[in-house]
Simulated assay, not measured.
Amino acid sequence: MVKEIFDFGLLKEFLNNFPVVINAMSGVTGPYVRRIFQEDLCSGNPKSTFLNTEPLPDFGGHHPDPNLTYAADLVKILKENPELYQFGAAYDGDGDRNMLLGAGGFFVTPSDALAVLAANLTTIPYFVKTGVKGLARSMPTSGAVDRVGKKLGLNVYEVPTGWKYFGNLMDAGKLSLCGEESFGTGSDHIREKDGVWASLAFLSVLANKKIGVKELLENHWKEFGRNYFLRLDYENVDGEKANKMIADLENKLKSTNPETLTQEIVNAAKESGAAAAPEKYKIAFTDNFEYTDPVDASVAKGQGLRLVFENGFGRLVWRLSGTGSSGATVRVYLEKCDDVSVLGVTLDSLKDLVEISLKLTSLHEVLGVTGPTVIT
């Protein structure tokens, strides 16, 4: 299938001089990594490295989640060998999610990966043949792909978290490429996210342009602008406390006078050291995301609290998963749009929104934590 989707000749020629590190994380993609990458595409480049390609029932005792925390072995290799390895990828246990990295451990957010692919789909033979029908992202995923859709004249759908919503759009012929900030990317070649496909698609763009990962991303930001994006996960927190925090926040967003809420936001931004001009943090709207499916008209409510600023400045999103007495996870999403200063550091660019979120929710105090479990 992948040989029908991608130009394997182009990929093989490019990878002969472009060493990669692929981490199957002891999951189901191991045999595919060996067959597709090790035996075929990278056979002419002995410098490429393949990790954890033997599927194990317990994933080798590790958490099979492809992020900067749980795929630390991959990140370490890239950071320690910046002149050697030019690309890294990791896949989760069942192979549907992926993390992509460049030389030196340069991290590609899934939101940016989706946008870059959207801007370059015609470098992939499959899309030249089928055409590009539309794009979609989950609500928490950054609006970077929206910028691409607007420029290319493509419909972009914003859906709740959950692949079934993408599936409906695919079945209706409305969607070619979609993704979630939780490291899931896919196309209509199958009705599911696909980690191996995602890395092959990204490598196809690199091979077509004959550049590295960081240069590709920086060129993209200069052309389309940048959506700085950060997700903070607070894992295994008390479910009752988390539920109360989210309920209190929703009530606060609904009932607080907009001017009062803006002033609270400005004060929090000032505490972060930001130059907090009130007009910069003017609120466009707050809500609990609701979605009406354009295919079957089904309605999904309560999909995440949103605070969206005016003039496309940015937004904050809060979601809760798991509602038992323990094991709940609170996820906070922070996004800021910038058309000019596109080469900044994400944590620096978003420190005001981090502080605003903490002040609005009293998250650390309510949940009894000192910081997030995972930052992506």
Results as ranks from 00 to 15, higher is better:
187 S>M: 09
68 L>I: 01
146 D>R: 03
277 A>V: 14
145 V>L: 05
127 F>M: 08
260 T>W: 07
342 V>C: 05
122 T>K: 08
199 S>D: 06
266 V>G: 04
171 D>W: 13
61 G>Q: 09
167 G>C: 09
195 G>N: 10
215 E>F: 01
352 D>H: 09
248 D>T: 03
154 L>H: 02
126 Y>P: 00
12 K>E: 14
147 R>W: 04
258 P>V: 04
142 S>L: 01
277 A>E: 15
197 W>F: 15
316 L>V: 09
40 D>T: 14
272 S>E: 01
338 D>P: 01
91 Y>M: 15
359 K>D: 05
364 H>F: 14
243 N>V: 10
236 N>D: 15
352 D>K: 02
247 A>F: 00
109 T>M: 07
241 K>N: 11
233 D>Q: 00
76 K>R: 13
162 G>H: 15
226 R>C: 02
337 C>R: 00
204 S>K: 06
2 V>A: 13
160 P>A: 09
97 R>K: 15
166 F>G: 01
59 F>L: 09
273 G>C: 04
349 S>F: 05
173 G>L: 13
307 L>W: 07
298 S>W: 10
54 E>R: 15
371 G>A: 13
375 I>D: 00
100 L>G: 00
261 L>K: 08
365 E>C: 00
369 V>K: 01
333 Y>P: 05
217 L>M: 10
315 R>E: 09
294 P>A: 10
267 N>G: 04
55 P>I: 10
141 T>Y: 08
257 N>L: 02
373 T>N: 06
322 G>N: 10
372 P>C: 07
48 S>Q: 03
82 P>K: 09
48 S>W: 01
374 V>S: 00
88 G>D: 03
68 L>K: 02
345 V>M: 14
2 V>R: 14
120 N>C: 13
201 A>R: 00
132 V>G: 08
196 V>A: 13
286 T>M: 07
95 G>S: 15
127 F>E: 06
314 G>T: 09
90 A>C: 14
288 N>T: 03
326 S>G: 08
6 F>D: 06
163 W>E: 12
84 L>Y: 14
